[in-house]
Design a protein around this nucleic acid. Structure first.
Ligand code: MN
Ligand code: MN
Ligand code: ZN
Ligand code: ZN
Lengths: 142, 142
DNA sequence: TCCTGTATTAGAAGAAGTCTAACTTAGGAA
DNA sequence: TTCCTAAGTTAGACTTCTTCTAATACAGGA
Protein backbone atom coordinates (compact mmCIF):
# COMPACT_ATOMS: atom_id res chain seq x y z
CA UNK A 1 0.00 0.00 0.00
CA UNK A 2 1.49 3.28 -1.11
CA UNK A 3 0.44 6.27 0.94
CA UNK A 4 0.28 9.66 -0.67
CA UNK A 5 3.42 11.53 0.25
CA UNK A 6 3.66 14.89 1.93
CA UNK A 7 4.55 16.86 -1.18
CA UNK A 8 1.62 15.51 -3.19
CA UNK A 9 -0.74 16.25 -0.34
CA UNK A 10 0.54 19.80 -0.16
CA UNK A 11 -0.26 20.47 -3.81
CA UNK A 12 -3.92 20.00 -3.04
CA UNK A 13 -3.70 22.65 -0.36
CA UNK A 14 -4.14 26.38 -0.41
CA UNK A 15 -0.57 26.96 0.68
CA UNK A 16 2.07 28.79 -1.24
CA UNK A 17 4.73 26.32 -2.24
CA UNK A 18 7.95 28.33 -2.33
CA UNK A 19 11.33 26.82 -3.14
CA UNK A 20 12.18 26.74 0.56
CA UNK A 21 8.96 25.02 1.57
CA UNK A 22 9.38 22.53 -1.23
CA UNK A 23 12.91 21.71 -0.06
CA UNK A 24 11.61 21.00 3.43
CA UNK A 25 8.72 18.87 2.17
CA UNK A 26 10.93 16.91 -0.21
CA UNK A 27 13.19 15.93 2.63
CA UNK A 28 10.36 14.57 4.74
CA UNK A 29 9.72 11.55 2.61
CA UNK A 30 9.14 7.98 3.72
CA UNK A 31 6.90 6.45 6.32
CA UNK A 32 9.37 5.58 9.04
CA UNK A 33 11.34 8.76 9.30
CA UNK A 34 11.70 10.87 12.45
CA UNK A 35 13.99 13.77 11.69
CA UNK A 36 15.01 16.61 13.96
CA UNK A 37 14.71 20.21 12.77
CA UNK A 38 18.48 20.28 12.52
CA UNK A 39 18.51 17.19 10.30
CA UNK A 40 15.79 18.66 8.12
CA UNK A 41 17.80 21.84 7.79
CA UNK A 42 20.93 19.90 6.88
CA UNK A 43 19.15 17.88 4.21
CA UNK A 44 17.23 20.85 2.86
CA UNK A 45 20.47 22.79 2.51
CA UNK A 46 21.81 20.16 0.17
CA UNK A 47 18.97 21.09 -2.19
CA UNK A 48 18.79 24.79 -1.47
CA UNK A 49 22.00 25.91 0.24
CA UNK A 50 20.70 29.30 1.31
CA UNK A 51 17.66 28.08 3.23
CA UNK A 52 17.69 29.42 6.76
CA UNK A 53 17.05 27.79 10.07
CA UNK A 54 14.17 30.16 10.77
CA UNK A 55 12.40 29.09 7.59
CA UNK A 56 12.85 25.44 8.43
CA UNK A 57 11.29 25.98 11.83
CA UNK A 58 8.53 28.14 10.39
CA UNK A 59 7.69 25.54 7.79
CA UNK A 60 7.78 22.62 10.19
CA UNK A 61 5.50 24.47 12.59
CA UNK A 62 3.05 25.28 9.82
CA UNK A 63 2.97 21.69 8.60
CA UNK A 64 2.33 20.47 12.12
CA UNK A 65 -0.49 23.00 12.55
CA UNK A 66 -1.94 21.82 9.22
CA UNK A 67 -1.86 18.24 10.46
CA UNK A 68 0.51 17.23 7.69
CA UNK A 69 3.31 16.39 10.08
CA UNK A 70 3.39 14.71 13.45
CA UNK A 71 5.67 15.56 16.34
CA UNK A 72 7.39 12.98 18.46
CA UNK A 73 8.82 14.18 21.72
CA UNK A 74 11.59 12.06 23.10
CA UNK A 75 11.82 13.83 26.51
CA UNK A 76 15.57 14.10 26.08
CA UNK A 77 16.85 15.79 22.95
CA UNK A 78 15.13 17.74 20.23
CA UNK A 79 11.68 17.03 18.85
CA UNK A 80 11.32 14.85 15.82
CA UNK A 81 9.02 15.33 12.88
CA UNK A 82 7.04 12.46 11.43
CA UNK A 83 5.55 12.69 7.92
CA UNK A 84 3.62 9.45 8.35
CA UNK A 85 0.27 10.90 9.33
CA UNK A 86 -1.94 8.95 6.95
CA UNK A 87 -2.25 5.95 9.26
CA UNK A 88 -2.26 5.79 13.00
CA UNK A 89 0.82 4.19 14.40
CA UNK A 90 2.68 4.16 17.66
CA UNK A 91 6.28 4.60 18.73
CA UNK A 92 8.84 2.55 20.49
CA UNK A 93 11.46 4.86 22.03
CA UNK A 94 14.83 3.76 23.36
CA UNK A 95 15.38 5.37 26.74
CA UNK A 96 19.11 5.26 26.23
CA UNK A 97 19.87 6.45 22.67
CA UNK A 98 16.41 7.84 21.80
CA UNK A 99 16.03 5.82 18.62
CA UNK A 100 12.43 5.69 17.47
CA UNK A 101 10.74 2.75 15.80
CA UNK A 102 7.27 2.75 14.32
CA UNK A 103 4.87 0.06 15.38
CA UNK A 104 1.47 -0.52 13.85
CA UNK A 105 -1.46 0.03 16.11
CA UNK A 106 -2.99 -3.37 16.54
CA UNK A 107 -5.11 -2.92 19.60
CA UNK A 108 -8.36 -1.02 19.43
CA UNK A 109 -7.98 2.64 20.29
CA UNK A 110 -8.05 3.10 24.03
CA UNK A 111 -10.88 5.27 25.20
CA UNK A 112 -11.23 7.63 28.10
CA UNK A 113 -14.07 6.58 30.37
CA UNK A 114 -16.93 9.08 30.20
CA UNK A 115 -16.87 9.78 33.91
CA UNK A 116 -13.14 10.56 33.81
CA UNK A 117 -13.32 12.87 30.81
CA UNK A 118 -14.90 15.69 32.76
CA UNK A 119 -15.75 17.96 29.86
CA UNK A 120 -12.45 17.42 28.12
CA UNK A 121 -12.74 17.19 24.34
CA UNK A 122 -10.53 14.31 23.24
CA UNK A 123 -9.20 14.59 19.70
CA UNK A 124 -6.43 12.04 19.62
CA UNK A 125 -4.41 9.50 21.48
CA UNK A 126 -0.70 8.70 21.42
CA UNK A 127 0.81 5.46 22.61
CA UNK A 128 4.52 5.47 23.37
CA UNK A 129 6.31 2.31 24.32
CA UNK A 130 9.53 2.84 26.24
CA UNK A 131 12.46 0.51 26.59
CA UNK A 132 15.79 -0.31 25.05
CA UNK A 133 16.60 -0.77 21.39
CA UNK A 134 18.45 -3.96 20.39
CA UNK A 135 21.87 -2.28 20.49
CA UNK A 136 21.37 -0.66 23.89
CA UNK A 137 19.74 -3.79 25.30
CA UNK A 138 22.79 -5.83 24.29
CA UNK A 139 25.21 -3.33 25.74
CA UNK A 140 23.29 -2.43 28.82
CA UNK A 141 19.97 -4.12 29.59
CA UNK A 142 19.87 -7.68 30.65
CA UNK B 1 -7.79 4.19 48.94
CA UNK B 2 -4.84 6.04 50.38
CA UNK B 3 -1.59 5.47 48.54
CA UNK B 4 1.69 5.80 50.38
CA UNK B 5 3.07 9.23 49.69
CA UNK B 6 6.46 10.08 48.30
CA UNK B 7 8.02 11.15 51.59
CA UNK B 8 7.00 7.96 53.40
CA UNK B 9 8.32 5.85 50.55
CA UNK B 10 11.63 7.70 50.70
CA UNK B 11 12.14 6.89 54.37
CA UNK B 12 12.32 3.23 53.47
CA UNK B 13 15.08 3.98 51.00
CA UNK B 14 18.82 4.15 51.36
CA UNK B 15 18.91 7.80 50.43
CA UNK B 16 20.13 10.61 52.59
CA UNK B 17 17.20 12.83 53.43
CA UNK B 18 18.66 16.30 53.74
CA UNK B 19 16.57 19.36 54.52
CA UNK B 20 16.63 20.30 50.83
CA UNK B 21 15.52 16.91 49.64
CA UNK B 22 12.79 16.83 52.22
CA UNK B 23 11.51 20.21 51.06
CA UNK B 24 11.28 18.92 47.50
CA UNK B 25 9.56 15.71 48.52
CA UNK B 26 7.09 17.48 50.77
CA UNK B 27 5.96 19.64 47.93
CA UNK B 28 5.25 16.71 45.65
CA UNK B 29 2.25 15.52 47.53
CA UNK B 30 -1.08 14.39 46.14
CA UNK B 31 -2.03 12.05 43.38
CA UNK B 32 -3.12 14.44 40.67
CA UNK B 33 -0.30 16.91 40.70
CA UNK B 34 1.94 17.71 37.73
CA UNK B 35 4.37 20.42 38.74
CA UNK B 36 7.15 21.95 36.72
CA UNK B 37 10.66 22.18 38.17
CA UNK B 38 10.10 25.90 38.51
CA UNK B 39 6.91 25.36 40.48
CA UNK B 40 8.63 22.82 42.71
CA UNK B 41 11.41 25.33 43.32
CA UNK B 42 8.93 28.05 44.15
CA UNK B 43 7.04 25.90 46.63
CA UNK B 44 10.17 24.42 48.17
CA UNK B 45 11.53 27.93 48.74
CA UNK B 46 8.54 28.75 50.89
CA UNK B 47 9.76 26.01 53.25
CA UNK B 48 13.47 26.45 52.83
CA UNK B 49 14.19 29.86 51.27
CA UNK B 50 17.82 29.15 50.44
CA UNK B 51 17.24 26.02 48.37
CA UNK B 52 18.79 26.39 44.94
CA UNK B 53 17.55 25.59 41.50
CA UNK B 54 20.41 23.14 40.95
CA UNK B 55 19.40 21.13 43.99
CA UNK B 56 15.80 21.04 42.88
CA UNK B 57 16.85 19.68 39.48
CA UNK B 58 19.32 17.26 41.04
CA UNK B 59 16.69 15.93 43.40
CA UNK B 60 13.99 15.64 40.77
CA UNK B 61 16.35 13.76 38.46
CA UNK B 62 17.34 11.38 41.22
CA UNK B 63 13.75 10.70 42.15
CA UNK B 64 12.90 10.00 38.54
CA UNK B 65 15.88 7.62 38.23
CA UNK B 66 14.71 5.89 41.41
CA UNK B 67 11.28 5.44 39.90
CA UNK B 68 9.70 7.53 42.64
CA UNK B 69 8.58 10.25 40.27
CA UNK B 70 7.15 10.18 36.77
CA UNK B 71 7.81 12.68 34.01
CA UNK B 72 5.11 14.06 31.76
CA UNK B 73 6.22 15.80 28.63
CA UNK B 74 3.76 18.26 27.24
CA UNK B 75 5.63 18.94 23.95
CA UNK B 76 5.28 22.64 24.54
CA UNK B 77 6.60 24.00 27.79
CA UNK B 78 8.67 22.47 30.55
CA UNK B 79 8.44 18.90 31.79
CA UNK B 80 6.15 18.11 34.65
CA UNK B 81 6.80 15.80 37.55
CA UNK B 82 4.21 13.33 38.73
CA UNK B 83 4.44 11.77 42.21
CA UNK B 84 1.59 9.38 41.46
CA UNK B 85 3.63 6.32 40.50
CA UNK B 86 1.90 3.75 42.67
CA UNK B 87 -0.80 3.04 40.10
CA UNK B 88 -0.68 3.21 36.34
CA UNK B 89 -2.69 6.01 34.94
CA UNK B 90 -2.82 7.99 31.75
CA UNK B 91 -2.95 11.66 30.87
CA UNK B 92 -5.28 13.95 29.08
CA UNK B 93 -3.37 16.99 27.81
CA UNK B 94 -4.93 20.21 26.55
CA UNK B 95 -3.24 21.18 23.31
CA UNK B 96 -4.00 24.81 23.96
CA UNK B 97 -3.15 25.56 27.62
CA UNK B 98 -1.26 22.34 28.45
CA UNK B 99 -3.38 21.48 31.44
CA UNK B 100 -2.99 17.84 32.44
CA UNK B 101 -5.68 15.61 33.84
CA UNK B 102 -5.20 12.11 35.17
CA UNK B 103 -7.36 9.36 33.83
CA UNK B 104 -7.44 5.82 35.17
CA UNK B 105 -6.23 3.16 32.83
CA UNK B 106 -9.31 1.11 32.12
CA UNK B 107 -8.28 -0.75 29.00
CA UNK B 108 -5.81 -3.59 29.17
CA UNK B 109 -2.25 -2.55 28.52
CA UNK B 110 -1.61 -2.32 24.81
CA UNK B 111 1.07 -4.66 23.58
CA UNK B 112 3.57 -4.41 20.79
CA UNK B 113 3.12 -7.23 18.29
CA UNK B 114 6.06 -9.64 18.45
CA UNK B 115 6.89 -9.21 14.77
CA UNK B 116 7.01 -5.42 15.15
CA UNK B 117 9.18 -5.42 18.25
CA UNK B 118 12.31 -6.40 16.35
CA UNK B 119 14.56 -7.05 19.32
CA UNK B 120 13.40 -4.00 21.22
CA UNK B 121 13.05 -4.56 24.96
CA UNK B 122 9.80 -2.92 26.05
CA UNK B 123 9.71 -1.80 29.66
CA UNK B 124 6.73 0.51 29.78
CA UNK B 125 3.95 2.18 27.88
CA UNK B 126 2.50 5.66 28.09
CA UNK B 127 -0.89 6.66 26.80
CA UNK B 128 -1.51 10.34 26.21
CA UNK B 129 -4.88 11.64 25.14
CA UNK B 130 -4.81 15.00 23.42
CA UNK B 131 -7.56 17.50 23.02
CA UNK B 132 -9.01 20.58 24.64
CA UNK B 133 -9.80 21.12 28.28
CA UNK B 134 -13.32 22.36 29.14
CA UNK B 135 -12.22 26.02 29.27
CA UNK B 136 -10.35 25.94 25.99
CA UNK B 137 -13.08 23.89 24.32
CA UNK B 138 -15.66 26.51 25.28
CA UNK B 139 -13.49 29.29 23.97
CA UNK B 140 -12.24 27.62 20.79
CA UNK B 141 -13.40 24.12 20.05
CA UNK B 142 -16.61 23.37 18.30
C1' DT C 1 4.46 49.21 -13.10
C1' DC C 2 3.35 49.76 -8.43
C1' DC C 3 1.39 48.06 -4.22
C1' DT C 4 0.67 45.06 -0.59
C1' DG C 5 0.81 41.21 1.99
C1' DT C 6 3.45 37.08 2.55
C1' DA C 7 7.91 34.72 2.90
C1' DT C 8 12.69 34.64 4.06
C1' DT C 9 16.81 35.83 6.46
C1' DA C 10 20.63 36.54 10.06
C1' DG C 11 21.24 36.98 14.28
C1' DA C 12 19.55 38.20 18.86
C1' DA C 13 16.85 36.60 22.46
C1' DG C 14 14.42 33.35 25.37
C1' DA C 15 13.39 29.03 27.79
C1' DA C 16 14.75 24.98 29.94
C1' DG C 17 17.99 22.26 31.72
C1' DT C 18 22.95 20.84 32.78
C1' DC C 19 27.53 21.58 34.35
C1' DT C 20 31.43 23.44 37.15
C1' DA C 21 34.09 24.52 40.82
C1' DA C 22 33.92 26.16 45.34
C1' DC C 23 31.85 25.56 49.67
C1' DT C 24 29.25 23.08 53.38
C1' DT C 25 27.87 19.36 55.99
C1' DA C 26 27.53 14.97 58.30
C1' DG C 27 29.39 11.04 59.90
C1' DG C 28 33.06 7.81 60.84
C1' DA C 29 37.96 6.89 62.28
C1' DA C 30 41.60 7.86 65.28
C1' DT D 1 37.26 15.71 70.32
C1' DT D 2 39.48 16.52 66.04
C1' DC D 3 40.38 15.20 61.54
C1' DC D 4 39.10 13.19 57.16
C1' DT D 5 36.31 12.06 53.47
C1' DA D 6 32.42 11.52 50.73
C1' DA D 7 28.14 13.31 49.69
C1' DG D 8 25.25 17.30 49.13
C1' DT D 9 24.55 22.17 47.99
C1' DT D 10 25.22 26.49 45.70
C1' DA D 11 25.56 30.52 42.22
C1' DG D 12 26.12 31.33 38.07
C1' DA D 13 28.05 30.14 33.63
C1' DC D 14 27.01 27.40 29.85
C1' DT D 15 24.56 24.38 26.25
C1' DT D 16 20.89 23.18 23.56
C1' DC D 17 16.82 23.96 21.29
C1' DT D 18 13.39 27.08 19.66
C1' DT D 19 11.25 31.52 18.89
C1' DC D 20 11.37 36.32 17.92
C1' DT D 21 12.71 40.65 15.55
C1' DA D 22 13.47 43.77 12.18
C1' DA D 23 15.16 44.22 7.73
C1' DT D 24 14.86 42.58 3.06
C1' DA D 25 13.00 39.96 -0.88
C1' DC D 26 9.40 38.29 -3.49
C1' DA D 27 5.04 37.28 -5.93
C1' DG D 28 0.58 38.18 -7.59
C1' DG D 29 -3.04 41.40 -8.39
C1' DA D 30 -4.77 46.24 -9.48
MN1 MN E 1 6.41 7.40 13.30
MN1 MN F 1 -0.53 11.96 36.48
ZN1 ZN G 1 19.15 2.54 22.05
ZN1 ZN H 1 -6.90 24.18 27.94
Amino acid sequence: MTTTDLLSRLRGRDWRLSAQRRAVAEVLVGDHVHLTAEEVHELARSRLPEISRATVYNTLNELVAMGELGVVDVVDGPRRYDPYVTAHHDHLVCDRCHTIRDVPRTTALPQVADDARGGFLVTGVEITYRGLCPDCAARYGR
